[in-house]
């Protein structure tokens, strides 16, 4: 009997070790391709806490530069953004973030209010795979799954990614147990320039009201921040597309006023900020490039210093050490990307 138990334990251990290894091998690494997939997990490698946390979709991780906020204002910040992050994913990320730290300000980009239902498995994966296993992750998965998805595959990603067996590359082995840093405190840098031309006007919608589920999650966010003494700031990033309707704007303004929240629509402030869509966007107005993001961050840093309880931490040794390293990496990345971009556009 003892021998049987020993054999079962031995083979059980071999099975589990093999499954762990296979999971690690088959998970997409997002190192050289679709770096957006690596953003969520990078947060867990942060060494210090932050005063400002940005939460939202590409309109935050492409448009704000935490490094500039540090360099010019001494504000420590991090972007917990990911591609097409839906509002319930933002909520659970917020809840999870509050397990690790209590920032002074949470900044939430409201574009995701337009999505009242789960959208796409691919984006769900980019948003959720990187989260550590926690009640928040499980709740986010449950809220996000499309009909074709299985809950189990979020616990054992091999069930989802096993079909990659004929796509595995050296990168999958190289990054089996580690990852490079692809962002700068959650900011995904892009230095290319593609001016915004012929931005399409929004086509009329049958119904401009946001889905009840979105309002519920926005309420939960406001309640959560209130409970933790965190100031919630709602923003609409200055992206020209997807189109932001006046009717949507009114609803958010009313909501912010009702809940006593700050709301900034950067689309209305582009002149004041100095964003020039002929030079400050890398994809014709959908997202800002590095130069646009720095302009926006400069304006927002000033606003934060004036309106929120954030402080200049540049003189604090523990923060300065970490952030100076981050700044050096930021500068190196900027230099490298600019050289690559000039190589593509010698003129």
């Amino acid at each position: 009997m003892k021998r049987n138990i020993r054999a079962a334990l031995l083979w059980g251990a071999i099975l589990c070790a093999g499954l762990w290894l296979l999971n690690a091998l088959f998970m997409p690494k997002y190192m050289s391709d679709i770096p957006e997939g690596a953003l969520i997990a990078e947060y867990y490698r942060e060494e210090t806490s932050h005063d400002v946390i940005f939460i939202g979709d590409c309109e935050v991780y492409e448009n704000f530069s935490p490094d500039l906020l540090w360099r010019e204002y001494g504000v420590t910040s991090y972007i917990r953004g990911s591609a097409q992050q839906l509002i319930w994913q933002s909520y659970y990320l917020m809840e999870e973030t509050l397990k690790y730290e209590t920032p002074k300000v949470m900044v939430f980009n409201v574009l995701s209010m337009k999505y009242g239902e789960p959208q796409s498995e691919a984006y769900n994966r980019l948003n959720l795979d990187g989260m550590r296993l926690s009640p928040q992750k499980l709740a986010a998965v449950r809220a996000s799954m499309t009909e074709e998805e299985s809950f189990l595959s979020y616990l054992f990603p091999l069930l989802r990614y096993h079909a990659r067996w004929d796509e595995l590359t050296g990168e999958d082995v190289k990054y089996l147990t580690r990852r490079d840093i692809v962002s700068d405190s959650g900011y995904l840098m892009n230095v290319e320039v593609r001016p915004a031309e012929n931005v399409p006007a929004g086509r009329p919608l049958g119904d401009y009201s946001f889905a009840p589920a979105c309002w519920d999650y926005l309420d939960k966010m406001a309640d959560l921040c209130e409970k933790h003494g965190v100031r919630l700031v709602l923003i609409k990033a200055p992206s020209l597309y997807p189109y932001w309707y006046d009717q949507w704007e009114e609803q958010i303004e009313d909501y912010a006023a009702r809940r006593g929240l700050a709301y900034i629509n950067f689309l209305e402030l582009t002149g004041e900020i100095g964003v020039d869509f002929s030079a400050d966007t890398y994809d014709s107005g959908l997202h800002l490039n590095l130069y646009g993001a720095e302009k926006l961050s400069r304006w927002f840093g000033a606003w934060l210093m004036e309106n929120c309880p954030v402080e200049d931490r540049r003189s604090q040794e523990n923060y300065a050490r970490v952030w100076n390293e981050k700044s050096a990496a930021y500068a190196a990345r900027k230099e490298r990307l600019e050289a690559e971009w000039s190589g593509k556009n010698p003129a």
Partner: peptide, 17 residues
């Protein structure tokens, strides 16, 4: 059993798509 579980998980035709 262990080898078959691994093979099924990797090469089985199941999941999305």
């Amino acid at each position: 059993c262990v080898a078959l579980i691994w093979l099924i998980l990797i090469f089985g035709v199941y999941g999305i798509g």
